[in-house]
Simulated scan of single mutants.
Amino acid sequence: MQFQQIQHAFINHIKDPEGMPIPEGVADSRMAVYRELFFNNVQGFVSSAFPVLKSLYSEVHWLALVRHFFKNHQCTSPYFLDIAEHFLQYLQQSYKITEQDPEFLLELAHYEWVELYLATKPLKVLETPLLPEQVNQQPLALSALALVLVYHVAMHQISVDFKPAVGEPEHCYLLYRNSEDDVKFVAINQLTALLLQTLQQMPGVALDTLVQQLVPLLPQFNTAQLMQGAQSILQDFATKGVLVSFQE
């Protein structure tokens, strides 16, 4: 047997010990060490990245879910962060949800992955936070370490004791990493989410121009009301370090 064939047989058995035979000439006791090592590493990475999701499963069902991922998904990187992203992709693209899974499986997995993503994302360019009094004076930009997210479940309320039903209304969040490198979330209403999403799409916009973009989208408010509300909201987020000086 060629080395490449042995290598493939080794990998196939590690991923699917029940369905694939042990490579020829290798003792089961030796393979058992590798089977346990590889799976436990992946299981540990996934469990660390998705702690709330894990808490909603029995130990047996959680291990079965991770085993299914380990067996069926082709990971292209051994790094912890990449394995977490691969697990999310697997759930979104390949996994068939069962009665053992929470109804909000995909949204919760995404929310927890975003927390990890923001916690570890490197900044390519050093950002300068805006002061609240600069909101009216400076071109505005949302920090690269901030994301506006919309889900059909109140993510921050999910626990072993509370599993909300999926439905309306939409639940909007701003997740961001602060100056102490802690990831924080703010539950926001749909109007605030629209304001921040518009800002995210128009980095460098001035406050008055930003408000003008909102006027046709929110006909129930006049320009003065929108200006007052937008200024107050953005000043609050400036104190959190979410607004930064625009850089070309």
Rank of each mutant, 00 (worst) to 15 (best):
residue 70 F to V: 06
residue 131 L to E: 13
residue 84 A to H: 06
residue 26 V to G: 05
residue 208 D to V: 13
residue 193 A to I: 10
residue 63 L to V: 03
residue 49 A to C: 15
residue 201 Q to M: 09
residue 157 Q to L: 14
residue 131 L to K: 03
residue 97 I to V: 14
residue 26 V to F: 13
residue 39 F to G: 01
residue 219 P to Q: 03
residue 55 S to D: 14
residue 236 D to F: 03
residue 50 F to L: 09
residue 2 Q to H: 13
residue 157 Q to V: 10
residue 128 T to V: 12
residue 192 T to F: 04
residue 110 H to A: 04
residue 191 L to G: 04
residue 22 I to E: 12
residue 107 E to Y: 03
residue 167 G to N: 07
residue 141 A to R: 02
residue 112 E to I: 05
residue 248 E to H: 11
residue 184 K to G: 02
residue 221 F to N: 03
residue 217 L to E: 05
residue 11 I to P: 00
residue 14 I to Y: 05
residue 85 E to H: 09
residue 172 C to L: 08
residue 239 T to L: 11
residue 39 F to C: 04
residue 136 N to K: 09
residue 220 Q to K: 09
residue 206 A to E: 11
residue 53 L to I: 07
residue 22 I to H: 05
residue 189 N to E: 15
residue 9 A to S: 14
residue 175 L to Q: 12
residue 244 V to F: 05
residue 182 D to F: 07
residue 147 L to T: 08
residue 23 P to E: 07
residue 20 M to D: 15
residue 165 A to W: 08
residue 217 L to V: 04
residue 101 D to E: 12
residue 207 L to S: 10
residue 232 S to I: 06
residue 22 I to A: 01
residue 161 D to G: 11
residue 178 N to C: 11
residue 101 D to N: 06
residue 47 S to N: 10
residue 63 L to W: 01
residue 11 I to V: 14
residue 57 Y to K: 12
residue 149 L to Q: 12
residue 17 P to Q: 12
residue 131 L to R: 00
residue 245 S to I: 05
residue 165 A to G: 02
residue 220 Q to F: 06
residue 222 N to P: 05
residue 77 S to W: 09
residue 19 G to E: 15
residue 88 L to F: 07
residue 136 N to D: 15
residue 125 V to P: 04
residue 146 A to T: 10
residue 219 P to C: 01
residue 59 E to K: 06
residue 143 S to C: 13
residue 39 F to W: 08
residue 189 N to D: 15
residue 182 D to V: 09
residue 147 L to C: 04
residue 57 Y to P: 03
residue 120 T to L: 04
residue 236 D to W: 00
residue 90 Y to S: 02
residue 129 P to E: 10
residue 20 M to R: 15
residue 205 V to L: 11
residue 203 P to W: 11
residue 172 C to S: 14
residue 176 Y to F: 15
residue 38 F to D: 02
residue 31 M to N: 04
residue 223 T to Y: 11
residue 221 F to P: 01
residue 170 E to Y: 15
residue 235 Q to L: 01
residue 100 Q to N: 14
residue 39 F to V: 03
residue 3 F to G: 00
residue 195 L to G: 01
residue 70 F to G: 02
residue 144 A to D: 10
residue 185 F to G: 00
residue 237 F to K: 02
residue 134 Q to C: 08
residue 111 Y to T: 00
residue 168 E to S: 07
residue 220 Q to V: 11
residue 37 L to E: 08
residue 200 Q to D: 14
residue 33 V to P: 05
residue 202 M to I: 07
residue 221 F to V: 00
residue 110 H to M: 04
residue 242 V to A: 06
residue 7 Q to I: 09
residue 76 T to R: 13
residue 106 L to H: 13
residue 77 S to M: 12
residue 91 L to Q: 03
residue 72 N to A: 10
residue 115 E to H: 06
residue 87 F to E: 00
residue 118 L to V: 03
